[in-house]
Design a protein around this nucleic acid. Structure first.
Length: 283
DNA sequence: ATGGGGGCCTGCCGGC
DNA sequence: TGCCGGCAGGCCCCCA
């Protein structure tokens, strides 16, 4: 569910509560999610100070002063909820655990962070911080789309000769890390590229043109998430879900928003996932 | 080696 | 109202 911008929004929301603070208690309420949790996870978290809360692609990384990093993936339905604090003021008031609350972290001072994940496609693991680059989930990731390693040469080279549809290629986290189904649809719409086009047969100049579009789409979504953060924190403490205006995603049958286009948004299934696009202006 | 499809889970929504 | 199929923003694994 959450793609890079949503995960970044969750990170920013968790920052004031977690970064620099000690986890006083970890309540691990089941054996695992997508995979079993690491041995003694609760023990290894208890008493640890979060020295830094980072993000890599769709992963949250909490570096601990124990030398380990807590890796968190939200999967499709993972949510982070904060309780016990409002705008920096602790009030020691936590709701009772709800269905699908799988891991509860109590933070020094009274805040509480709850990981809720109905579909359990999420994941948590612990890894030595200095060995993170070799972790099986992290090692396979391509460059961060908003980082310096993501540039035109990289994308052109990574897609050269690929028979895969461009839609599928951009979902490949090894080529570029952090895009999901929604933002790939939005990117291809802005680039006027049809989702079924074979990645390796698109002119290099058009591929290069994807780079700034990808950056823009993600940056705008992060901004949109950031502006909604305060509201969510005040509301119910749930982070990462925000209203964002999509131009094609979920708009099957609606008119294309491109001025003068006149097309109607269509939906096809590629690799088992819906692709929304305008058959008129995406070629 | 690469690409396509199935599977993992639960919840929700629309149609009958 | 109740049941059922289809669908969901991610990712891994197996097979051709």
């Amino acid at each position: 569910m959450p793609e890079l911008p949503e995960v970044e929004t969750v990170r920013r929301g968790l920052l004031p509560v977690m970064e620099g603070h000690i986890i006083t208690r970890a309540d691990v309420r089941r054996e695992g999610l997508r995979w079993p949790f690491p041995d003694r996870m609760a023990d290894r978290l208890t008493g640890a100070r979060v020295v830094r809360l980072r993000r890599r692609s769709k992963y949250l990384l909490a570096d601990l002063d124990t030398g380990e990093t807590l890796i968190i993936h939200l999967g499709m339905s993972g949510r982070m909820l904060i309780s016990g604090t409002t705008l920096g003021k602790f009030h020691h008031d936590h709701p009772a655990p709800e269905k699908h609350d799988h891991v509860v972290l109590d933070i020094e001072g009274g805040a509480r962070v709850t990981f809720n994940d109905a579909r359990r496609f999420g994941a948590m693991d612990l890894c030595p911080t200095d060995d993170l680059a070799n972790h099986r989930m992290i090692a396979v990731l391509g460059p961060e789309p908003l980082g310096n390693d993501f540039h035109e040469d990289h994308l052109v080279q990574a897609l050269a000769g690929k028979n895969t549809p461009i839609k599928t290629a951009l979902l490949d986290q090894g080529i570029i890390a952090g895009l999901g189904n929604i933002y790939v649809c939005e990117v291809l719409f802005r680039a006027h590229i049809h989702p079924t086009r074979k990645a390796g047969r698109i002119a290099a100049a058009r591929i290069a043109g994807l780079v700034p579009i990808i950056r823009d789409v993600l940056s705008e979504a992060i901004e949109s998430g950031g502006s909604s953060l305060k509201d969510y924190r005040q509301a119910d403490g749930e982070l990462g879900y925000f209203q964002h205006a999509f131009r094609v995603y979920g708009r099957e049958g609606e008119p294309c928003v491109t001025p003068g286009c006149g097309g109607q948004i269509g939906r096809i299934v590629q690799g088992g996932r819906s692709s929304f696009y305008c058959p008129q202006c995406q070629r």
